[in-house]
Design a binder for these strands. Sequence first.
RNA 1: GCCGAGAUAGCUCAGUUCGGUAGAGCAGUGGACUGAAAAUCCAUGUGUCCCGAGUUCAAUUCUCGGUCUCGGCA
Length: 346
Amino acid sequence: MPSLEAYVTCLAFEVGSGRIAGVANRHVHQQRSLPPLIAVVGPTAIGKTALGIHLARAFDGEILSADSRQFYRRMEIGTAKPTREEREQAPHHLIDVADPDETVGLAQFLRLARRTLQQITARGRLPLVVGGTGQYVRALLEGWQVPEVPPDPDLRARLEREAEGDPDAVWQRLVTLDPAVPDFIDPRNVRRVVRALEVSLKTGQPFSVLRRRTPPPYRILRIGLTMDREALYARADARVDAMIAAGLLDEVKDLLARGYGWELPALSGLGYAQFRPFFAGQASLTDVIERIKFDTHDFIRRQYTWFRLNDPAIRWCQADAPDLQPRATEAVRSHLGIPDTDLDSA
RNA sequence: GCCGAGAUAGCUCAGUUCGGUAGAGCAGUGGACUGAAAAUCCAUGUGUCCCGAGUUCAAUUCUCGGUCUCGGCA
């Protein structure tokens, strides 16, 4: 019953918000001086884009997309990128900032996002972080300090080859350099073992001590969108069918024709990678569609581990409630400290 | 109508060779995550083994009867 629980959380927040004024005045003043930031989070296909645009229009805001796949140009349909019409309704950032053969990782995202946030705020406009890439959103809102170690493809390839032969040796090597690593990395996850080793080798410092965070200088309101799981799956499935109808296959063909390969991170995303067996003659289009749907369900489940229904920092709202927009608008208004009358007259 | 094959987890099926109440893949569910993150990795399988009767200490497994499904022939 995640939906009901979430709904209750939502109500609890409205009721409880008055309490904040009573606590530690100095702290409140300090917080008040920080510029506001709104984040709209939640699983894929739940309606974050639409709500983001609605809020941006209502509050003179600009949208910062926290979506690891919408960075890439020529990938419109499969990434469910906001359409041209949608983007005309409010300024959008961090969409179409790279070609598919480039790799925009966490660190680049954070750099771009922090700068963009600053600029939006400097313009006197309200920044809205809208996105479903859990790691990126959390990193941005929690102020993760990512170790300054760019990926080294050669080193990674070498370590991966080594791990293929003797995974334990590679793991032991990492543990020697960083004894704390078993607390947060699974030895069987070669990808993460290799990265940790990469950082430790290049910096000479344990990976674990380089993972720091400094809270960003904003007063943040997190609005979470949720919905009954089954209904959400149905909605996501329908969106996949709509993507196919909109020409997803042609979009993939076009990317391949331009020489973009399956090994690229951009092509590893939902709605793209699943076409690989199809082009290898090993799967029908029907198989591909089903695969995309199942993988999307899996993704939704994993997104909830980044955005938890019991996270008190997130104000969860039912995405399919008829009063979602007024409710969200009210939440933002109260966060900004704007009296009702100001908005009504505007 | 006849002949054959089958009926086992939500789905597709394996299996019980020599009877001791069952297991894979997919689906579903939970989790990890600090420069690939829509990636990568981990954990999680009690279901009238179609129904009835018989044999037996014991049947999902053997026997008989029935029901249904799918082929083939009429």
